[in-house]
Amino acid sequence: MTAPASPDSSAPRARILAVTSGKGGVGKTFVSANLAAALARRGLRVLVLDADLGLANLDVVLNLHPKVTLHDVFTGQATLAQAVLPAPGGFSVLLAGSGLVEYSRLTPEVRDQLLEVIQTVTPRFDIVLLDTGAGISEVVLYTVSLADEVLIVVTPEPTSMTDAYATIKVLATQQSRREIRLVVNQVARAGDGRGVAAQLQQVVDRFVGPSVGEPVKLALLGDVPTDASVRDAVKKRQLLVEALPGSPAAQAVAALALRVSP
């Protein structure tokens, strides 16, 4: 897999996994946070970087009230070490914080700062999850370009599938991605993710593969069923895998973690 702007690969460093979605509101941050906790539970050093610059809500999901954020690092008011915080769930987070409105446009400064931050943190972790913003803005595409692997969160909703497909198309053509991982969230029944992935794969094979001259493979990491316990955990502002580890959705996320890092 190619990662066009990936950091120096000579030193041992974390695998960088970008979590993105095309459409907003499909559970991207839910997947990032709970996947991170499930990976941490398996003994991995995990960092979640809130790359949803300007529209961050990882702090809300994790019930954190960060005093130091990425914004402070970008503006030189804090060191990176000060901004990497322990999160409930046994992993580390680097939160964007509010006040990042100015980063909604990809300027050379934002590019350099993000790249530097990622290069600095990767030697200290096994896996870094980049929780990107929704959509396919320049900032999102750039963030994804820094990752070794891409994971797209999609739901069986037509709008979500369309936006996920658009994202796949852009990543295959602009970033030469030939393998993209999928998590199908909010499925009615366990296993329904297969149909969604197959449908996407079929359209990719027909339209995207021929235009890039190579097959583009969608690898289904798994699906997560619609589960009332997800909302319960969010209301309590707790991680699902911590609060209700026996719930169907939490078990599905644990299964995802096994696929990410066998």
């Binding site: 297969r194 289904l220 990491l221 798994g222 699906d223 696929r259």
Partner: peptide, 11 residues
């Protein structure tokens, strides 16, 4: 999908 391990929601 072929080539992938079977996918289920069970742990």
């Amino acid at each position: 999908l072929d080539g992938d391990p079977p996918v289920t929601a069970s742990p």
